[in-house]
Design a protein around this nucleic acid. Structure first.
Lengths: 135, 135
DNA sequence: GTTTCTGCAAAGTTTTTGCACGTCA
DNA sequence: TGACGTGCAAAAACTTTGCAGAAAC
């Protein structure tokens, strides 16, 4: 069990994640942190993002378009992935309906499950309005 | 717009997907089809899985453990990803609660969304019972 | 001084693609 | 025959890892 040591790079990554709601990829984080630390490497960014995710200070969201997304908001919430523009959106729904849904799932699936988060797939407002502009 | 032509390999892949509920990875499909077509290549398996997914005859499910899963059941249903054993399970819940959840999400997110499917994350029955055996 | 972290580069994993040949219609 | 599909291998895309030196404590 390794003790955690401070690093300016990790602190900068945390600050960046806390400042945005766009759920950046590792590469987007890398490009941003590079402005402050021109020598930072992508490997360091990956190591820190995984570390933060492991200790619960960030969330990793796997999407179908290659490249995980990262979220500095670790308060319980769910996500929506737009299959049109490929953005990840925060859903600040209350957890009541989620519990109902969980219960419904448990009734039909032959065994208990305990769901902690949910990822919705579909189209966002903008892509519903302008189907031609996106794939 | 290319016309679709029959191929024995694709037919075999479809048959396999229809016969299983374990949501195999491309590699698992490859290994299975290889028993019937020893010379089939992984590239062909990927091409056919993507093709089937594109024309709506299969579903591709991206999970956080690397390697997409494929499902031959294209009837509307949702999935559960167990973070313990990394299995993908089918959820045969009715769509009522999902619509409620959607509505709840739409009220708090500033814009309409239209969700077609949902992926739950959590622990399955077996992993809840035996936490030590899985990560 | 010791442990942890970083930058770099190499390697690993999964998926896609170019091309020559084979199959379907 | 002509269009589409396959096998193979190379490449692409994304992520992890080994190592020597730097930073933290």
């Amino acid at each position: 069990m390794a003790a955690l040591k401070y690093s300016r790079q990790r602190e900068s990554i945390k600050k960046y994640l806390a400042s945005t709601t766009e759920h950046p990829t590792a590469d987007m984080v890398y490009l941003h942190i590079k402005e402050e630390f021109p020598n930072i490497s992508l490997g360091t960014v990956y190591r820190n993002l995984n570390l933060l995710s492991d200790i619960g200070e960030a969330i990793k969201i796997t999407t179908p378009d290659g490249g995980d997304r990262f979220d500095g908001n670790v308060a319980p919430h769910n996500h929506f992935y737009c299959e049109g523009c490929r953005r990840v959106l925060d859903l600040k729904m209350d957890m009541g309906p989620l519990k109902e849904l969980n219960a419904s799932a448990q009734q039909t699936f032959d065994g208990l499950i305990e769901s902690s988060s949910v990822l919705f797939f579909g189209k966002c407002q903008n892509c519903l309005k302008h189907p031609s502009e996106n794939q």
